[in-house]
Every structure is written in C-alpha cells, then in structure tokens.
Amino acid sequence: MATPSGTPSATPHRADPLTLEVVELIAGLVARYHEEYEEAAAEHALTGAQAKLLSLLALEPLPMRRIAHRLKCEPSNVTGIVDRLESRGLAERRADPADRRVKLAAATDEGLRVARGLRESLRFAREPLAGLSADERLVLRDLLRRMVP
C-alpha cells in the first residue's frame, strides 16, 4: 500500500503465494550454498570461518576490525583465525601503507590459490545456470543485483 506521496507505507502486509514461493526457493539456495561451502572448506582442511576469511582476503587486504565487522564476530576471534591461516602460509599480516600502526591481513599467493579453488568447487548452481541462456543469466544477475544492495 502506498502513502499519498506515492511511497510504500511502513505497514506490513501479507506476502502473496508467489512471493512466499520465491522466498522458499532463495532459502533453499542459501542452505545449499552453505552446505557446499562447508564441504569445500573441509576439502581444503579449513573450517567454514577460515574459508570465509580467506575468501574476503582474496578480494583485498583488510584490517582486523573490518574483518570482524564483516564476519560479525569479535576481533579476538579474527586474530585466532588469521593466526591459523598464517601458520599454514595462506595469509600474512602487513602494515597498512596509509597508517603503519594498523595491521592488515592479506592472502598470500597460496591463499589466493586456495580461495580460487574454494570458489571453483561450488558446483551446485553451475549446471542449473548452464541450462539458462546467456540472456536469462543476465536477467537473473540484474534482478539479484537489485535485491542485494
């Protein structure tokens, strides 16, 4: 329902059956993603938390506080996870060039290789996506981008 100004009202409304079905499909997809992610992590002898952190570090070096915020955990937990990744040669600590007092965690070359292997081992969506045309995949991508800020 819209207000006189045309903006949606804050009053919650009941979801229609199609919306409920889409929500259930998304929930199933998310559950399957987490299941395969945990399996992929185990194949690399990583915990789920270690794999998630390594995936973040593969994108860019990050300060510990930002990692804790992204993983929604305490900075002390991040320290332990980075320690374990560092002991395996998958991550390293380095000074932030912008502020040498800040330590960044970064993936090593081996860490980048393992993170790539983790991504590539997530097979659950590949076959269904391969069944869609390139145009259908573009539409799906664009719709998901609208849903995920």
Rank of each mutant, 00 (worst) to 15 (best):
T3E: 15
S5M: 14
S5V: 09
G6P: 11
P8H: 14
S9Y: 12
S9R: 15
A10I: 15
A10D: 10
A10R: 14
H13R: 15
A15C: 11
A15L: 15
D16Y: 07
D16H: 12
T19R: 12
E21T: 11
V22I: 13
V22S: 05
V23Y: 02
E24L: 10
E24S: 13
E24D: 09
I26Q: 05
A27K: 07
G28D: 13
V30K: 11
V30S: 04
A31E: 08
R32P: 00
R32I: 06
Y33G: 10
E35C: 07
E38M: 03
E39T: 06
A40S: 10
A40W: 02
A41R: 01
A41E: 00
A41C: 02
A42Q: 14
A45L: 11
Q50E: 09
A51E: 01
K52S: 12
L53W: 00
L54T: 00
L54P: 02
L56A: 01
L56I: 05
L56W: 03
A58S: 10
L59T: 11
E60K: 04
P61F: 04
P63D: 08
P63L: 02
R65F: 08
R66C: 01
I67E: 02
A68W: 00
L71A: 07
L71G: 02
K72I: 07
K72D: 13
E74A: 08
P75Q: 02
N77H: 08
V78M: 09
T79M: 11
T79Q: 11
V82L: 06
D83K: 04
R84Y: 05
R84P: 02
E86M: 05
R88S: 13
R88A: 13
G89I: 09
A91T: 02
A91L: 04
E92M: 05
R93E: 04
A95E: 15
P97T: 05
A98L: 13
R100E: 15
V102A: 03
V102G: 00
A105I: 03
T108W: 09
D109K: 15
E110H: 10
G111N: 01
G111R: 04
V114G: 05
V114D: 06
V114N: 06
G117Q: 09
G117D: 07
S121E: 10
S121T: 12
L122G: 02
R123P: 00
F124K: 03
A125V: 13
E127C: 05
P128F: 12
P128W: 03
A130C: 00
A130N: 10
D135Q: 09
D135A: 14
D135H: 05
D135Y: 03
E136D: 08
V139A: 13
R141W: 13
R141K: 08
D142F: 08
L143F: 11
L144Y: 04
R145W: 07
R145A: 07
R145K: 11
M147Y: 07
M147W: 11
M147R: 06
M147V: 10
